[in-house]
Amino acid sequence: MREEKTTADRLTAFSDSVFAVIATLMVLELKAPDNLAFSALWPLWPWAISYAVSYLLIAIIWINHHHLMRFVSSPTLGLIWINFIHLFMVSFLPFATAWVARTGLASSPVVLYAGLFVCIEIAYIVFENQVLAARASATQASGIIRRLASRRSLIVLAGFISAMLVALVAPRLGFGLICGALILHVRPDSYGGK
């Protein structure tokens, strides 16, 4: 049993490290203006908004990942691989964030940004289903928790897909829809208990 827990702890530690590197890469994209006046900061608003939103989104993703990892006692090979796929998708956030910022929230970058969140959410849904299925079989818990988690994740996925489509014609609204969809993931314990 202790070796299984060590494996789960190692998977969690590795994932935490990847999230930390991703957040660090995003901050490295921020460049201070050469001008000494506060007015020089105004043209940087796309960077500030993109960075703040992406950082918040990484925090929400990490919190949900951390919450789910508490239920993993013995990670299967499938769970390890879907964890890597999920982290791989999240690792594109610094690139997408920089493109959104450089273009002042233009349509194509926001479409890509929303599309990235579609991919992240699909990987998360698979990850979440595997973790909760193992937890349910281990504790004989009812399917209510899994249904609530699945329903919430599918609503979030629909929000990201909508944001991607809306961003084609109204990129700032699409960007806002991305933020709105992720609000549903702010409280991971609303389906999983303590």
Rank of each mutant, 00 (worst) to 15 (best):
E3M: 13
E4W: 00
E4R: 10
K5I: 12
T6G: 03
D9Y: 01
R10E: 08
L11Y: 02
A13W: 03
F14N: 08
D16A: 04
D16Y: 01
V18K: 03
T24R: 10
M26Y: 00
V27S: 12
E29Y: 00
L30D: 07
K31D: 13
K31L: 07
A32W: 06
A37D: 15
L41P: 00
W42H: 09
P43R: 11
L44H: 09
W45G: 05
W45A: 13
W45Y: 14
P46T: 08
I49D: 05
I49N: 01
S50N: 07
Y51L: 15
A52R: 02
Y55C: 11
L56N: 11
L56Y: 04
L56A: 04
I58K: 08
I58N: 03
I63L: 15
N64Q: 12
H66N: 14
H66I: 10
L68Q: 04
R70D: 10
F71A: 09
S74N: 13
G78L: 12
W81Y: 13
F88P: 00
F88M: 14
S91F: 03
L93W: 01
P94K: 04
F95R: 03
A96G: 07
A96D: 11
T97H: 02
T97G: 01
T97V: 02
A98D: 13
A98N: 11
T103M: 05
G104D: 14
S107K: 10
P109V: 05
V111K: 07
V111C: 06
F117Q: 10
V118C: 14
I120V: 15
Y124Q: 14
Y124N: 06
V126D: 11
F127P: 00
E128G: 02
N129W: 13
Q130T: 06
L132C: 05
A133P: 01
A133Q: 15
A134D: 14
R135H: 11
T139L: 08
Q140C: 00
G143R: 04
I145G: 02
R146K: 05
R146G: 02
L148F: 00
A149M: 11
R152C: 03
L154V: 09
I155N: 04
I155M: 11
L157S: 09
L157V: 04
F160N: 12
I161E: 09
S162V: 14
L165G: 01
L165M: 15
L165T: 03
A167I: 06
A167R: 03
L168T: 01
L168M: 12
A170N: 07
A170H: 05
R172G: 01
R172K: 13
G174S: 07
L177M: 15
C179E: 11
L182G: 03
L182D: 09
I183C: 15
I183V: 15
H185W: 12
V186P: 00
V186R: 03
D189F: 01
Y191P: 00
G192C: 04
G193F: 00
G193T: 13
